[in-house]
Amino acid sequence: MKSKVKLALTVIAALAATASAGAADTRPHWEYQGKAGAAHWGELAPDFAACGRGKAQSPIDIRAPRAGAASPIGFAYRASSADIVNNGHTVQVDLADGGDIDVAGTTYRLVQFHFHTPSEEAVNGRRYPLVAHLVHRSDAGELAVVAVLFKRGRDNAALGPVFAGMPATAGEKRAATAEFDAAALLPERRGYYGYTGSLTTPPCSEGVRWHILKEPVEVSSAQLAAFRKLYRMNARPVQPLNGRVVEVTQ
């Protein structure tokens, strides 16, 4: 029980640290490359130790997933007011009341979603141009992430208002001009790869439930270029699976 409480407090603190660009961030500076890059995160602070020593880290390269008893995701998203934040590492959309998901009888409230390019997770060695990570939190403080993969194609209407309002400066926040319904980001088919991993940014806390939707949606080259103008690359390298099982649902 103590370990679960400690995990809940850790992930809540990590989520809060990136929830608002206006709040002071006293954590050590980190980035994706160079001396403070992903290869060195575990050395930057004691609280970041899991980034270097953890055995259940994310992201992963998904290969040979096992058909198992993973539960379908019950999506219950709704339109919500939103703030679009440039937090210095990505563009993040904070939702006031964006609805929730249900997985195996546990309800997780949608808190925010953000983007990585290329996709952090790989499927059979392939990384997609972009991924959105939808971050959810249960009443017990447990985190569940739904990942939506993007492939090049047509303009994505759901991303239009978000990418049109992306703040160019780290630390800047803008209110979205209209309510946003995260259901618009989802593919038609909701089968997913599921496993237990970690946050993909420091402090890399473990115990996060991951759900990578199998069916990608489209993003245009122009939209991808607009995001990459702010963040050319913000993806952590894939991490060892270390015996974990990845289950797949249809």
Rank of each mutant, 00 (worst) to 15 (best):
S20D: 14
E31G: 15
A21S: 15
A64K: 13
P59N: 10
G52A: 12
D100R: 14
T26A: 09
P65V: 01
P72W: 11
A96N: 08
G68W: 01
Q33L: 08
L44N: 06
A69I: 08
V93E: 06
A39I: 01
S81Y: 04
A79K: 10
A56L: 03
A69P: 04
D97E: 14
A24K: 11
L95T: 04
A56I: 02
A16E: 09
A69T: 13
A36L: 06
A79D: 01
Q33N: 14
D83C: 08
A67S: 03
W30T: 10
P59I: 10
A96Y: 04
G22A: 12
R63Y: 01
A69W: 03
Y77K: 00
A70R: 10
D83Q: 15
A39N: 08
W41I: 06
V103G: 01
A56F: 00
D83H: 11
I73L: 13
A82C: 09
E31F: 10
Q57R: 15
I62V: 10
A38E: 04
A70W: 04
Q57P: 00
I73G: 03
R53Q: 15
F48L: 09
T26F: 12
A21W: 11
D83I: 02
D97S: 09
P59G: 07
R66G: 00
S81A: 12
P72H: 07
A70G: 12
F48G: 04
H40T: 11
V85Q: 15
D25T: 15
A49T: 15
D100T: 11
A17L: 05
E43K: 15
S71C: 06
D94T: 09
A76H: 14
A67N: 05
G54E: 08
H29L: 08
D83S: 13
A21I: 06
P28I: 05
F48A: 13
S80Y: 09
G74M: 03
H40N: 07
D97C: 02
H29G: 05
Y77G: 01
H89V: 01
A70T: 08
Y32P: 03
F48M: 04
S81G: 15
N86W: 01
G68F: 02
A17H: 06
H29T: 14
V103W: 12
D94E: 09
G98S: 06
F75T: 06
R27M: 11
D25Q: 05
H89A: 12
S71E: 07
A79P: 00
F75S: 01
A82Y: 03
T26Y: 13
A76L: 10
A39M: 05
A96R: 14
A38G: 07
P72E: 02
D100S: 09
P28C: 10
A23P: 01
D83V: 11
G22Y: 08
